[in-house]
């Protein structure tokens, strides 16, 4: 048994490959840092929400494509994972953005404005 395990040849590490992995990790850290900058310097609103979701998709791309190696798989496999997710995003946009606002309007739910604050309608 001992001989069987020692006979396996260990290949030397490829430095550029390992450097590439840490580079992706660095990109993920930087994108997260940018998200924090937006969280603390920008007021909440539709634009900030879109920026956050955009940066999240950037992070998701690097994780799926590089860490999960999907970017290096056969095209058929890439599309069989990617297409269902794209259709799902379409559904999410439709449900959240359109239906959520419609339900809110139909139920007559109004936002809370503290007393003494001037109401400025900047939600659109």
């Amino acid at each position: 048994m001992e001989q069987a395990t020692t006979s396996v040849a260990v290949q030397p590490a490829d430095r550029s490959k390992i450097l590439g992995i840490w580079k992706i990790a660095g990109i993920l850290a930087i994108v997260t840092a940018i998200e924090y900058v937006f969280a603390f310097t920008m007021d909440a609103g539709m634009l900030r929400t879109i920026i956050f979701i955009g940066l999240t998709i950037v992070k998701a791309f690097y994780i799926v494509s590089e860490f999960m190696h999907l970017g290096h798989e056969v095209k058929g496999l890439i599309y069989s994972i990617l297409l269902p997710m794209l259709f799902l995003v379409w559904l999410i946009v439709a449900l959240v953005q359109l239906e959520g606002a419609a339900i809110k309007k139909a139920r007559g739910i109004e936002n809370y404005v503290p007393a003494g604050t001037e109401h400025v309608d900047d939600s659109h």
């Binding site: 007021d43 909440a44 559904l91 999410i92 449900l95 959240v96 953005q97 239906e99 959520g100 606002a101 339900i103 809110k104 139920r107 739910i109 109004e110 936002n111 809370y112 404005v113 503290p114 604050t117 109401h119």
Partner: peptide
């Protein structure tokens, strides 16, 4: 996440100054 976003977008939001 759809449930979260749907409930959140149809709930009343706070429209005052975030610091108060």
């Amino acid at each position: 996440l759809i449930t979260y976003a749907f409930l959140r977008w149809s709930a009343p939001q706070y429209e005052g100054d975030p610091s108060t």
